[in-house]
Design a protein around this nucleic acid. Structure first.
Lengths: 278, 278
DNA sequence: TTGCTCCTCACGTCACGTGAGGTGGC
DNA sequence: TTGCTCCTCACGTCACGTGAGGTGGC
């Protein structure tokens, strides 16, 4: 029989760990002196402790280990737990590999540019939405901007404040070759019962469902639409370096109601749907 | 200006997270109403938040991030932090890959044998030690056991109880081909000043330094030396499956003072030095 | 008698999630 | 007036490490 200190030296673990496992009921000492509270361990308990340590190294929680060592799980269930572990570790490996790529990208950026860019790209899912908008084809940003101004005014008049979401421009063409702009301009809205809204020149805003995206790469820009190419280029580089590929319609979402006289102060989130490259 | 709930919805983070970052000084709201305590955020703070979220994804702690975003670190120092992160992530990847191998080994073992073996192999470092022992060559375990008995008695008489460590048998031959046993039998001792001890037949125990091992694969067995091949085979399989290779002298360490009349109750730790296979 | 080891609290870790209990503006 | 949102505590998480303060055997 060993005192806790002797046993901990044999097993190369801390005595605090042994006390903790005693408290959890994971590994009880063979004997506890009722008078002093001293814990006494037997050498033959070392295999029990080693089993616990091995299961811990496999990544099981102490709660799972407690179930396993209490023999309440058979080989079949244990195999199931191991398979679940394998899946989780594989996921973890993927996450870490992605991190490593990202860190290496930033190191390369500092080496190339001397510093990190100010604009960070974040990837996140995007839910389904309702969109009250009008299709617009244009060959220049100024032309589109006139429609945008009309959309803003019309929406403010026609839609209840509580149901009116952010102004957004959807872009169905190739964002990197904007010779002919194929846009939809409108607002996100909260409720289906928002009616259509007539605009000048026979145009008409209608509500439609805008499907969500599993992964959307987004980047905030502050400034006029013409300067969007900066943030766009940034997302393009990010997508290329991170093992994603672009796909689907991009969006520019105005995070604040824009001041049409000062579009250079607009705060816009550029959004590009992305998917993992195979 | 947005209330915390609006800002949290735009940024897809919880308002608890925003309050926490406020508390840490990581991201202060643009304005806090002194009367109500309400926090007000500006859309232009979204890039600041995104920077924090990106740095978090790279694996920095919030404390490191606080230093980085407070602009107290330049590009050179930031690069250093990124390189440190890269090293740490690579280490983590190695650990996870090793875990994955271990988990797969256990799954295969259940598939082969229907259950997991009782004897777990643990790998750990082993420090330098002092060893009071006698060289023995023998062609059988019984012959060696006679010497072992004499060693136990002689050591008990000659060495102070407080300086006498565990009984151990060092094995310099190939553990898997034991046709000629090339052993040292003796005790670990605490102090250099333990003298030599004369045995019968002109044998003599002497103290020597026993160098440590960076990685030692160990497995506890309970039973006679003849049954050691079970634990030995177990370690052999483990070493093979885990990307290690054997190298150096193995040891059998008696965790309890052995009862020479009942060696089948002996609790022995089999120890094999190992190294990573390239 | 002096060290050494043992004991039992109890706080700290890290980045929040999750109530509890209460208040302010539409 | 009723929801809704906001606020500030404060506990819980996971597996222990690290004192604090005190006691028992050689």
């Amino acid at each position: 029989m060993f005192l806790i200190g002797e046993f901990s030296r044999i097993a190369r673990v801390s005595s605090r760990l042994l006390r903790y496992y005693d408290e959890l009921g994971l590994l009880r000492p063979e004997h506890v002196d009722p008078a002093t509270g001293y814990r006494y361990y037997r050498a033959s308990q070392l295999p029990d402790l080693n089993r616990i340590l091995v299961l811990k190294e496999l990544g099981f929680t102490l709660e799972e280990i407690a179930r396993i060592v209490a023999e309440r799980v058979g080989a079949a269930e244990l195999r199931g737990m191991l398979v679940a572990r394998r899946t989780e570790i594989a996921r973890q490996l993927d996450r870490e590999a992605e991190r490593l790529r990202q860190v290496e990208t930033r190191i390369a950026e500092i080496d190339d540019a001397g510093r990190l860019s100010e604009d960070d790209v974040v990837v996140r899912p995007e839910p389904d939405r309702l969109f009250l908008g009008v299709p617009v084809t244009a060959d220049s940003f100024p032309a589109a901007r006139e429609v945008l101004a009309e959309v803003v005014h019309a929406a403010r008049r026609a839609v209840a404040r509580s149901a009116l979401g952010a102004l957004a421009v959807l872009s169905h063409g190739d964002a990197f070759e904007p010779e002919l702009l194929d846009l939809e301009i409108g607002h996100f809205v909260a409720a289906e019962d928002v009616g259509a809204v007539e605009l000048s020149g026979g145009r008409r805003m209608e509500v439609r469902a805008l499907p969500g995206e599993a992964a959307m790469a987004v980047c905030v820009r502050i400034g006029t639409p013409e300067r969007a190419h900066l943030a766009t280029a940034r997302i393009g580089r990010f997508v290329e370096q991170s093992g994603y590929q672009l796909g689907g319609s991009s969006r520019e979402v105005f995070l604040e109601p824009p001041d049409l006289a000062h579009m250079e102060r607009a705060v816009v989130e550029m959004q590009f749907p992305v998917a993992r490259r195979p």
